[in-house]
């Protein structure tokens, strides 16, 4: 019981604020190291693809960005739902914090996908199922951010955002399975949860290292933004005192 109460104290924004500050370097520094290692493996160690040449090296940023875009949306919907169901302020703040980073990764996946599509498919964009559903994901992020910004009362903004986030989460499995459900121009999955990957080991290593780097980066910036949101919403003495002490 005491142990449970001990963990619940971190649901309080003012208690979580200093903890988030301590956690940020533990994610930001490994993220930087892994980005450097991932780029080295991706550009120096991984061989040139016999079909796509060096253009395939775009996947080392495109695939992790696409995965992060989807994963962060699922997390956003989860935290928004928890915040709505249990009136947990920190969860709603976490959902708000995840939105911009998720939108940025979705934008990166679309932009890099377009840059990959031109030399390999001969076109910047096609309205196929994978690309269209990913564009809808970006619109969902932008909609969530805009909706929250348009409502002055943060609690009402959280509730409205939660409805949109929960409804929109249905788009994530559509993105993931779109290459199986429809006949699309986009290639199928090269890495499967069950089954052998269809790419060479150094290419797979570079992709996974970049994925880990993107994940660590996301945690660091989401925690950083969460601290900003806590400061904006909970302007009470405890937070102010912490900031004054840190400065």
């Amino acid at each position: 019981m005491t142990q449970k109460r001990h963990w619940f104290k971190y649901a309080s924004p003012t208690v979580f604020y200093p903890l988030a500050g301590k956690l940020i370097p533990w994610f930001a520094i490994p993220a930087t190291i892994l980005f450097i290692v991932g780029l080295y493996v991706g550009f120096v160690v991984a061989p040139t693809d016999f079909q796509q040449g060096d253009a395939y090296r775009i996947i080392f940023i495109h695939v992790p960005a696409a995965w992060m875009g989807m994963l962060l949306y699922v997390l956003l919907a989860f935290y928004a739902a928890i915040g709505w169901a249990f009136n947990a302020r920190l969860s709603s703040m976490m959902a708000s914090s995840l939105a911009i980073t998720g939108a940025i990764f979705t934008f990166i996946s679309l932009a890099t996908g377009s840059l990959w599509g031109k030399p390999t498919w001969g076109t910047w964009w096609v309205w196929d199922a994978r690309m269209t559903s990913t564009l809808i994901l970006l619109f969902l992020y932008v909609g969530f951010i805009s909706l929250q910004a348009a409502i002055d009362d943060p609690r009402r903004a959280d509730k409205a955002g939660a409805v949109l986030a929960i409804v929109g989460v249905i788009n994530v499995p559509i993105i993931y399975f779109s290459v199986q459900w429809w006949n699309t121009l986009h290639q199928g999955a090269t890495i499967r949860i069950l089954g052998k990957p269809t790419i060479a080991a150094p290419m797979l290593a570079a992709m996974l290292i970049m994925l880990a780097a993107c994940w660590l980066y996301s945690v660091a910036v989401v925690l950083y933004r969460l601290r900003c949101i806590i400061l904006e919403r909970e302007q009470n003495a405890a937070v102010i005192a912490e900031v004054a002490e840190a400065a």
């Binding site: 780029l39 040139t48 040449g53 060096d54 253009a55 090296r57 775009i58 940023i61 495109h62 960005a65 911009i100 980073t101 940025i104 934008f107 990166i108 932009a111 890099t112 840059l115 990959w116 031109k118 030399p119 980066y217 910036v221 950083y224 933004r225 900003c228």
Partner: peptide
């Protein structure tokens, strides 16, 4: 990049600018 430099470096530049802008905006905020 075997003639694909614009596409490959362009992709990484977009990612760098987007993520760098996110971090800078957070520091400013």
């Amino acid at each position: 990049m075997g003639g694909y430099g614009f596409y490959v470096w362009g992709s990484y530049l977009i990612a760098l600018v987007a993520m760098g802008a996110e971090v800078l905006a957070l520091v400013k905020r």
